[in-house]
């Protein structure tokens, strides 16, 4: 009979050893993705431009409507919630500051990232996963084509460009939502609201938001690719991995958000 201590260590080991392998697999994907994106183009293996553009359309352009609607609503909600408190101190005009700063610094990037991880992160995992299940990834390897370069790099480029672009768009629409509510329900003069917003916003606020968005784009792509390449079996596992990729990418987006927000708080 194994002792209690042996059981305990066995239990820990069974939990930890697979994690170590997961970390290794993730590291391999991260490493090769960055190699094929940032190093190999300078060694004569260009990025697949057409595929990148088609990914940009799929991940970026096609999410414009949903990002617009959600940002508009969040802008309105934010203005309402701010007004609820600010009305009591008679400082309704500060709704402009609150909406502007919180949308550009925080809500724009994170909302966009969550929408994109739901739309594109899952699609990446499903696409790569079903290709893995159908031996298409193996076929690429035997043709001497690196699957990371072929599949992941265009997606990474697409999200690194489109996520900041969508974020700018989301910022604008969100602020417009706040503006709409403030000028109608709260009866703030449009010019006053505009001037207050311009005064409140710093270039820094928008830029930190965009840096975050770019990082989120990397996180979403890597998580989708990682879960996709992890598929070993058939269709059932593709579904499971797709769900896992959405959960993991939203979680990691928030973790990175915390990290960057802390960083920017102390260093800008």
């Amino acid at each position: 009979m194994p002792s209690i201590a042996e059981n305990l260590f066995g239990c820990i080991g069974r939990k930890v050893i697979p994690i170590r392998r997961d970390i290794h697999d993730a590291a391999v994907i991260i490493n090769s993705t960055f190699y094929w994106t940032f190093v190999s183009p300078f060694r004569g293996k260009p990025i697949r431009l057409r595929a990148s553009i088609s990914e940009m359309v799929k991940a970026g352009y096609n999410s414009v409507p949903i990002v617009a609607v959600i940002s508009l609503f969040v802008g309105i909600i934010l203005a309402l919630q701010a007004a609820y408190q600010l009305k009591r101190v008679g400082a309704l005009i500060y709704v402009a500051n609150l909406v502007g700063v919180s949308i550009t610094r925080e809500l724009g990037p994170i909302l966009t990232a969550i929408i994109v991880s739901g739309r594109s992160g899952s699609a990446f995992a499903a696409e790569i996963g079903s290709m893995k299940a159908a031996e298409e990834v193996d076929a690429l390897i035997t043709m001497g084509i690196n699957p990371v370069r072929f599949l992941v790099v265009p997606k990474l480029i697409a999200l690194m460009i489109m996520l900041p672009a969508l974020t700018v768009f989301s910022d604008l629409i969100g602020i417009f939502g706040g503006f709409m509510l403030a000028t109608t329900t709260l009866e703030i003069h449009p010019f006053n609201y505009f001037q207050q917003s311009v005064q409140a916003l710093l270039v820094k606020d928008v830029l930190t938001g965009l840096v975050k968005a770019c990082a989120f784009g990397i996180v979403i792509t890597i998580v989708g690719a990682y879960e996709g390449f992890k598929v070993e079996g058939g269709a059932e596992e593709v579904g499971r991995r797709t769900t896992a990729s959405v959960v993991a990418s939203i979680f990691l987006v928030i973790v990175f958000d915390l990290f960057f927000t802390t960083l920017f708080y102390f260093f800008t």
């Binding site: 159908a134 031996e135 298409e136 193996d138 076929a139 690429l140 390897i141 035997t142 043709m143 001497g144």
Partner: peptide, 14 residues
């Protein structure tokens, strides 16, 4: 690998 061609079970076309 450039000197090899492989036909997979499910054809594995993209």
């Amino acid at each position: 690998r450039k000197r090899m061609g492989v036909l997979f079970q499910g054809a594995a076309l993209l």
